[in-house]
Simulated assay, not measured.
Amino acid sequence: MILENARIDDIELYEVKIPLKIPFQISGGVSYFRKSLIIVLHSGEYVGYGEAAPFEEPYYSSETISSVKMLYLELLFKRILGEEINSIEHINDILSKGVRGNNFAKAGMENAYWDLLCDINKISLKELITYKLKQLEVNEEYINNEDYIESGVSVGIPIDNSIDTLKQWVKEYIEEGYKRIKIKIKPGWDINALKAVREVIGDFPLWTDSNSSFNFEKHKDMFKAMDEYNCLFHEQPLNHDDILDHAKLARYIKTPICLDESLKSSIIGAQALEIEASRIWNVKIQRIGGLLEGLKIYKLATNNNVKLWGGTMPESGIGAIPIMNLSSFKGFCYPADVEASERWYGKNQDIVEINMNKQGQIYLPKCNGIQEIINWNNFKNFTTRIYSSK
């Protein structure tokens, strides 16, 4: 029998700052460090780790590290400290009561509770996910899973805005074993970048990611021109809270549309299906408010022939563990954005090291809780404790 209840005796909060190997630029801004927050929940001798990983500025979502920190310290920590939590559903209800949005904040705490339950029950996260998928009555076929995921690389916009730099990066990533290429685009860095990459990689799997930077009326014909480059799909080309214009674009061009920023819940997913906006979805645990919502989206998708893949912000290795495990289930069709730690930070610089083999496979860590696989030297070097309830 799997226990889902725990009394929260203590909470710790850490700020993380890991230098990036190469600055990562998307349409909204540039990151030079992976800054995030690590939440640690204690229940007696047991402990659970979670990560909230918004950016410092609100260019991906409305949340920032500062806003999440404030919500934790002024509201959410007080709600669960000293309380007996009855289930994963219960902690989600507690975090959501009277709180609209703030999904990154919710995800960090909710994921820490999943990890706490893994420690209490001495089971892997994949075993716990399997248990909850069965509770949700997901089709048995889609409870099948692998011990690994396939990894694809997300290629940012070079700081020097050089097509030659982009082409060199792409060559190197393919040689390292990544199973597909995704390039970031924005107005002014779009079709020429796509054309150059396609010339380098031939018919290798490729898609674009706009991070909501284009406008339907202004740019629809450019996306139609992109049809000739045979992308698997275009990820979130239009506004971050839009599904209507995405439905229009889906009817206007041949290349399929994938939802990212606008897919904040299973409710939005159901609406997207109704208006035929997209049947390819990127599941980001941070964006949707936690792993339980990810399971609900998984059930909706597998019931409706929607193709899924796992996305990251990216987080540190701690934050990547939930989507790594969920992405190992059969309903995930495309290589995930989970990448080797070395790609982001350099070798042995992550708090939890993620390794990829030459076949582009990342095997799930064998552990009954994240604390078993943390690099404690890196944890000490890259984190600062800013709160403890004791």
Rank of each mutant, 00 (worst) to 15 (best):
E51R: 05
N86F: 15
K69S: 07
E84L: 13
R79F: 12
Y59R: 06
S62C: 13
E83G: 13
G98L: 09
R100I: 09
E57I: 13
I65K: 00
I80A: 14
I85D: 04
K69F: 08
Y59T: 11
Y32E: 02
S66Q: 10
L73V: 10
G48Q: 02
E56F: 15
L95Y: 03
P58I: 07
S67P: 09
Y60W: 05
I80P: 15
I39G: 01
H90L: 11
I39T: 03
V47A: 04
E89N: 15
M70R: 14
G48F: 00
I94F: 08
K97D: 04
Y72T: 02
G101L: 07
T64K: 06
I91F: 08
Y46N: 08
Y46G: 06
N86Q: 15
S67G: 02
A52R: 10
Y60R: 11
F104S: 00
A52P: 08
E56D: 15
L75K: 15
V40A: 01
S36N: 00
L73K: 15
E51V: 05
S66D: 14
K78Q: 10
S67R: 07
G50P: 02
V40M: 04
G50C: 01
E74G: 08
L37C: 00
E45W: 03
I65H: 07
G82T: 14
S96C: 06
H90F: 02
F77T: 13
A52T: 03
I88T: 11
I91C: 08
L81R: 15
E57S: 12
S61C: 13
G48R: 04
E84Q: 11
G82L: 06
A53F: 14
L75A: 13
L81D: 11
R100N: 04
I38K: 02
K35Q: 04
S62K: 14
G82P: 09
G50Y: 06
V99T: 01
L75V: 14
G98K: 04
R79Q: 13
M70F: 14
H42P: 04
L71E: 05
E56P: 14
G82Q: 13
S87P: 01
I94Q: 07
K69E: 05
E84R: 10
G101Q: 00
G44C: 06
R34D: 01
K97W: 10
G82K: 13
I91L: 07
S87Q: 10
A52Q: 09
R79H: 12
S43Q: 03
K78C: 05
Y59K: 10
E56C: 14
L37E: 03
F104Y: 08
Y72N: 00
F33H: 03
S36D: 01
D93N: 13
S43C: 10
G101C: 12
S43N: 03
V68P: 07
R34P: 01
E51F: 02
K78G: 13
D93Y: 12
S62I: 09
Y60M: 07
R100V: 04
L75W: 12
F104D: 06
V99P: 09
N86H: 15
I38C: 02
G50I: 12
E74T: 08
Y32G: 07
F33M: 02
K97P: 11
Y60K: 13
I85V: 14
T64P: 11
E84Y: 09
